[in-house]
Design a protein around this nucleic acid. Structure first.
Lengths: 143, 143
DNA sequence: ACACAGTTGCAATAGATTTGCGGATGCAAT
DNA sequence: ATTGCATCCGCAAATCTATTGCAACTGTGT
């Protein structure tokens, strides 16, 4: 019973295999995963896709999982690690993704501006960089 | 014959109604639009959805249009205005979006770090803020 | 072990993109 | 203005991702 179960129980939600596995898999992955990626990494028997989506929605609403929007067709998910978050670099031509912890990410001034100008209370942000990875640059891929 | 036609012609692509309209509509919109939004704003006769997608893909590969990835089911698009770009705030509960020009957006240090650590040449980035808009906060919506 | 609320698999849907194809259109050279 | 060719466009069908209804099943507290 890892801290995953703890967290779920604390939030008053039944602890099920699907939920524990999702949290474990996401936590072990250095990159955000799509629902499909996630299902593939499940040990057999694999859960139904609908179950994966439902659990991702739940975990996400509980704040245990965070969705990541890259410019892809499907959404990706990553384990939410408290206040810490990550930023990412995506290669425009091969799609390779690198993630790195957002150390000293200080956007508080911008968030303050936002509060003043729009009245929005900012609770989160996502920052992604796009460009070309070394391999693609060498091969001269143009996208 | 606006500068839209110019840009397309310069890039050696036929100037068609669909393309001119897409560029015009996106440029007039303060917010990024989905393919559907775009089609709805077309004066009749409205183009087929497939045409809109194909043109968006083309304009995007030519660098005239930029895709925006919010945490939604569909992608959004905005007019690419040279070096200038925008950041956005999205309300978690009603989806309302506000966009604002990224003045003095200096992420060059981060981009330099990325080049050193991963070898990626960063050409672009996107920064989105998520939170609650004043109305939803007042109504006490929780998501 | 029991009772209930909350889950899960499965099948059916919904919504967003993409693709194949034949007819129409933009554009450069007559 | 006409012609030729490359490139589009609309239409229908196909893909994919994500969501929903339903009946059977599991997690939890008693």
């Amino acid at each position: 019973m890892g801290r995953h179960s703890e967290a779920l129980r604390r939030l008053g939600r039944p602890v099920t295999r699907g939920r524990e596995e999702i949290l474990r898999i996401l936590e072990e992955s250095p990159l955000p995963l799509s629902s499909r990626d996630l299902r593939e990494r499940f040990p057999d028997p694999k859960p139904d896709a609908a179950t994966v989506y439902r659990n991702l929605a739940l975990l996400s609403s509980l704040g245990l999982v965070r969705t990541v929007a890259l410019h892809e067709r499907s959404r990706r998910y990553e384990a939410a690690e408290g206040e810490n978050h990550r930023h990412r670099v995506v290669c425009r031509s091969c799609g390779r993704i690198e993630a790195f912890p957002a150390r000293k990410c200080d956007l508080s001034r911008v968030e303050e501006d936002i509060r003043r100008r729009f009245g929005f209370t900012v609770t989160d942000h996502s920052l992604e960089f796009f460009g070309d990875c070394p391999e693609c640059r060498r091969k001269g891929n143009k996208g």
